[in-house]
Design a protein around this nucleic acid. Structure first.
Lengths: 330, 330
DNA sequence: CTGAAAGCGCTTACAG
DNA sequence: CTGAAAGCGCTTACAG
């Protein structure tokens, strides 16, 4: 039985409760300036009539849609799937709904989706920029008057929620150096993004500081690509792989296994992210953990502050080295 | 520079173009009843003034929000991440925006998110029901007048986009029987859902038809749980595992490896889904493929039809056996 | 094709 | 706390 009966409005609720329309509206939003009794009376009437608050009508008048757009560069990467879940939950906690778009690393799609969010009157947007995104995009958002925050990948301007990419990889590399490795390669990070640049920089810095020769093995964050490179490594090649992220590390472990080598024993491997599978792999993966829940919460906090024109300090979330069998405990 | 200038409305565009407001509105939507020249003139004026169509204001009058809610039971499962990406892309193609909510298998959260979608005036909802969802929820949606379609998991009523769970597992089991296996166990499917019931039924049917003794090893669709069971299997135990889905199969392979057994050689393993990693694993995973893009497209097609009160036939998407080294090619 | 009018369901001042 | 009024930016008939 579809809703054939006429929709009940605040006016109807007010009538049923015997109060003015504006009073009913305030009661439904739980204004503290009303008596408890009034609020209860109105809410009862609303329940009775099956009243449903219309956020869109409210928005037309108030200018706020209680909606935030989330643009993710690649949702099928488990790390971003976890991030998406975290952002959605945080928005839910703040009473907002999340528009989702997966850009699949395409700046063109990203641009189109931002325009759609704009037409849908999203109050703000949380952005994991697609690889190759130009900073001018953020100027455009500013021109639109659209509050934004970047996540994971940033541009050294505006609000950003992310980990210390350089410091994280530095830590991982130093850990391997501390284990006595000399031939340590950096695998992954071929995409054009701030994470790629900074993680590579962290690796290079640690290697040079230790007087070791760096070896870059760039590839996309894709299990197949990483696996192919790792399986082709010569026996006299690297004894340890600092991987760009967990997906690359996972690929590397598969490639090593395929070549008959045992990850963690024959070649050490580290990841970056600490996705749910990292600890489940065999051997379990040593990683730099990015606290995904924190990052999501921070991004939501920042975009809401920006919507309300309030400043929020731009703190970097803390990373952490988690040592498991793939590097250090075998 | 935030949008401090007053927002330009259709009225302003109409004035600048020298036409009536209603004409401008039609031109912006590209009505075929207008002359090309008029349309161009209006669009030029709109571009010049930086006009942004307000979908929410439009909705208030027309009753359509061009928005669909997507409820996913567990977005961090790679299969559902791929499905989410597919649905979002299909909605985008239809000019709609996707509200996303991840229920994490909680019927309570699911219920709360549906109410939020209702307040946001989503035109319809695509639902991968949380485990334990009661069919009465669909009656509720009908009472709301909210068009819906279930995906993957269904209730034998209303619109549904999904694969043939029973037939798929039947095919996988028969494949293993055809390879000569006698001790074939079914791993996973502990959650309460139509997929669990039907996949288990397919397995049981195939085993009994072949005169073999079934062995059920229920566990949640979680890599750790599956891994633990698989690593504990006795040498005289099953020689083949029909897994509930790819995640379970992946866990099983990890568990076997951990116990020093080679998946595909010592114990055959099949998955269900064909997520991106299935083919990348070592050994590559034999699976029943669910065409995720098709399913997403079908679900969107059905919910749009339902929104427009048009019937669409409820076809099941085709599954397919993909034989790889984990069962049959080693 | 055009123009003036009404209305979608709220919120926001503003006077009591 | 209450009430009457205006308005957010569109679309929808309806008469020209």
């Amino acid at each position: 039985m579809p809703a054939s009966a006429k929709k009940t409005r605040i006016e109807d609720v007010a009538q049923a409760a015997g109060v003015a329309r504006s009073t009913a509206a305030m009661a439904l939003r739980g204004s503290p300036r009303l008596r408890e009794a009034t609020i209860l009376k109105v809410r009862e009437a609303a329940d009775l009539l099956g009243y449903v608050y219309d956020r869109l009508a409210a928005r037309l008048r108030s200018g706020r849609s209680n909606t935030v757009g989330l643009l993710v560069c690649e949702i099928t990467n488990p790390f971003y799937a976890e991030l998406t879940a975290g952002v959605q939950a945080a928005l839910e906690g703040a009473g907002m709904a999340a528009f989702l778009a997966n850009t699949d690393e395409s700046p063109l799609r990203q641009r189109a989706m931002l325009e759609r969010f704009r037409e849908q009157r999203a109050d703000g947007v949380i952005l994991v920029p697609a690889a190759g995104t130009r900073p001018a995009l953020l100027d455009e958002l500013d021109r639109w008057g659209m509050p934004w925050v970047t996540m994971v990948r940033g541009f050294r301007r505006g609000s950003h929620a992310g980990a210390d990419d350089r410091g994280g990889i530095l830590l991982a590399t130093r850990h391997l150096i501390g284990l006595g490795h000399k031939r340590i390669a950096f695998l992954g990070g071929a995409a054009v993004s701030s994470s790629s640049l900074r993680r590579r920089a962290g690796y290079l810095f640690a290697m040079r500081a230790a007087g070791l020769t760096p070896q870059l093995l760039p590839c996309l964050s894709e299990i197949g690509a990483a696996s192919a490179i790792a399986s082709g490594l010569a026996r006299g090649g690297p004894t340890a792989l600092v991987c760009f992220n967990d997906s690359v590390a996972f690929g590397a472990m598969l490639g090593l296994a395929r070549a008959g080598r045992v990850p963690g024993r024959d070649v050490a491997v580290t990841g970056f992210d600490d996705t749910a599978i990292a600890a489940r792999l065999w051997p379990p993966l040593t990683v730099i953990r990015q606290p995904v829940g924190d990052m999501a919460f921070r991004a939501v906090e920042q975009v809401l502050a920006s919507i309300r024109s309030r400043a929020v300090e731009d703190r970097v979330v803390e990373h952490e080295l988690v040592v498991r069998e793939s590097a250090g405990l075998f």
